[in-house]
Write a protein that binds this DNA or RNA. Structure first.
Lengths: 335, 335
DNA sequence: CTGAAAGCGCTTACAG
DNA sequence: CTGAAAGCGCTTACAG
């Protein structure tokens, strides 16, 4: 019941080479023959063997994706775009969920085997240095996405976090806020530092003094705790708005305000970062900075395929700009 | 620089058959030879070609996973367990993100090709009937996980939603609540109906009258809207607690209460379902029913491998029991 | 326990 | 535009 390329060739009355050419969309096949082959393939319900094609051609048709966290709706959205682009181009996606903390030289991910994948997409790595060298040594094509550090010789697509931080602050400034508190993300992440730098630049430019508190993690709990402590120490007075380094922190901040009967945005405005799915779910809806996840996914996948096909020589980094999404959590300060 | 099995055989001073046996962990290799082969493989940094192995053996070593949504922390946790089990057993995971609404006979997912995968894991399908037939026809082994309908002839691992609904209600009853409102999930899902049935059984058993409102979706927004409307129509009075069909609904419910200055659990208790990551993030922490996601993932993956290896003849459905996780959102009713 | 031989199903120069 | 031939790198009976 399972047919091979010889069965198709016989049925179509051509050689297997011609069948192979039809399978591979080669232009050098007479239209009449192409039709005969197509017809035969259909009648036999023929599917070329992926293994045989890989073995003969040296290509696998699979792209590996390394990612350590899927709960993030930003990543999940990027993943959707990647998957779509890849399928459209005849590749398919193999997943490696990694806990980066567990990676070391003895424990190189499964997919890092030359013949398993044609290329690798590495999403939001924290300690990318660990494998960049390994990958380069093995000559496996790869693209970094949403990476923290800048690697001049590695193709990557990242988001302009400086601009995001700047725009978030500008939004608050334009509403009339002057005392704006920034809750920054973990210093481990370049994105945290960039967002903070954007905030500082906007503040300085406007002649306002920056105030920054550091959050130990991008989490609801952390935002909640920070605000609770600020309130209990009475250090919040004077601030009319908060720019949180991400939506989770912002959500925790707002939760703390709700539990303390402080109105958002009536008493204080809050802006987040990422436009997670949750940002629009609670009331008030969270004003935030949207990262172009879909675009990032598509561009990264596109870049990788180009590298694989050898259409690209110079590796470059593409930096995408975020947008602001205005909802209800920000408003002009009370007079 | 890329070596094959002949290079290893020559270096080790044995035939390629012996090398192959070492690769495949065959027991019939003299220990001394095994060591020589292992040594040679190491020195040459040899990796067997996955494509060649697939072609020769007819096995691919990849398991396809069909899933349509990754933002759910329940699924994401199951996925982690699946991934781990599969890697430990030498398989690797190919992902197909599908929008089930787009599936039809002309648009059968990519992975449904006999020679691409050794088997398929189908997680939380809504309209599984569409492909069960297709898959059976193609004789691709598969396991359904967290499926809605009961398919006697299909191996699957599901969670006992009836028991979850019953236990959630019992918890409230035992705290002393009598007027318990249930916000049920979309009727499209079997899980919604089962949870509701569990609720009704517990209520009836306790001699309490059930009250059910239907939520059109498992979402924060929906829970929020329902409660806001209940409050505005003054229909909430009398109820001392709410059992929401999932955590998202519960979170929306609590959010609405916060915005209306109704205290949880002081004025009203709320229990959710799923133990999403978010359940413990907000204040008060949400009491909820935890689904054994890890266990489900591992058992499903295990089942599939057994089927693939032919170790299983009878297909059966495994039903797992959920646990209750008690946090701060439930308490005894006010006197 | 070991190995010679056949075969898995394609693709890729190459010659025509 | 077409096809004969070689080769991709393994696994699997089978015989010894």
């Amino acid at each position: 019941m399972k047919y091979n390329i010889y069965d198709v060739a016989k049925k179509a009355g051509v050689s297997i080479v011609t069948v192979s050419k039809v399978i591979n969309n080669s232009q050098t096949v007479r239209e009449g023959n192409r039709q005969k082959v197509l017809q035969a393939m259909k009648e036999l319900n023929y599917n070329p063997s992926a293994a045989a094609r890989s073995l003969a051609s040296g290509r696998t048709g699979v792209i590996g994706l390394l990612i350590d966290n899927l709960t993030d709706s930003f990543l999940s959205s990027a993943l959707g775009a990647i998957n779509e682009y890849l399928e459209d181009n005849g590749y398919f996606l193999a997943l490696s969920l990694i806990n980066e903390s567990k990676i070391n030289n003895d424990n190189i991910p499964f997919l890092f085997q030359q013949d398993r994948v044609d290329g690798l997409l590495i999403v939001s790595p924290v300690c990318e240095d660990t494998y960049i060298l390994d990958l380069k040594g093995k000559k496996i094509p790869f693209v970094l996405m949403d990476n923290q550090k800048f690697h001049p010789s590695v193709p990557s697509v990242i988001v302009n976090n400086y601009k995001g931080g700047y725009d978030a602050t500008r939004h608050l400034l334009e509403l009339g806020h002057k005392k704006i508190l920034h809750i920054s993300g973990p210093g481990l992440y370049m994105s945290s530092n960039d967002r903070e730098a954007g905030y500082r630049a906007a503040m300085t430019e406007a002649g306002c003094a920056p105030y920054v508190i550091n959050s130990s993690s991008f989490s609801i709990e952390s935002g909640y705790k920070i605000v609770k402590q600020l309130i209990s120490e009475n250090k919040l007075s004077g601030f009319t708005s908060i720019f949180a380094a991400d939506d989770y922190i912002a959500l925790g901040v707002i939760d703390a305000f709700k539990n303390s009967s402080i109105k958002v945005p009536g008493d204080i405005s809050v802006i987040g970062y990422d436009d997670q799915e949750l940002a629009s779910s609670f009331h008030p809806g969270l004003t935030t900075i949207r990262q172009p996840a879909d675009e990032m996914g598509r561009i990264g996948a596109e870049m990788l395929l180009k590298i694989i096909k050898g259409e690209v020589k110079r590796y470059n980094t593409i930096k995408l700009d975020p947008d602001i999404v205005i909802r209800e959590s920000t408003a002009a300060p009370k007079q």
